[in-house]
């Protein structure tokens, strides 16, 4: 029988639909009987949604400006090369 700890171990796989049919069924059966695990799964799912809603990672503006400079430089070299070959 699936215990609460076992369920906690595979909780992300359940949320992401990565379990096989038999495992999925035993998680569902356990969740029907166990309020604590229902709360846990709900909260873990909320944590996952929270991360999706959170910014997809911010890069600092100084870093982005340095990339802009490198790109601008490389674009101008490329442009000059192209006009030389024309």
């Amino acid at each position: 029988m699936l215990m609460c700890r076992d369920l906690a171990e595979i909780a992300s796989d359940y949320i992401d639909g990565e379990l096989n049919g038999r495992q999925n069924l035993s998680v569902k059966m356990h969740l029907m009987m166990c309020k604590d695990c229902r709360t846990f799964i709900g909260n873990l799912r909320a944590s996952s949604n929270l991360l999706s809603a959170h910014s997809s990672g911010k890069a600092d503006e100084e870093f982005l400006r340095r990339i802009d400079e490198r790109v601008a430089e490389a674009l101008s070299v490329r442009k000059n090369k192209c006009s030389d070959s024309e």
Binding site: C4, R5, D6, C37, T39, A46
Partner: peptide, 23 residues
């Protein structure tokens, strides 16, 4: 979890709010 694999300290609160509200 205790030695039988049941919750000793279960989650107390439910995260009610949607992710957007939480953010």
């Amino acid at each position: 979890f205790n030695s039988t694999g049941r919750w000793d300290l279960p989650p107390k609160l439910q995260f009610h709010d949607s992710a957007d509200t939480l953010m």
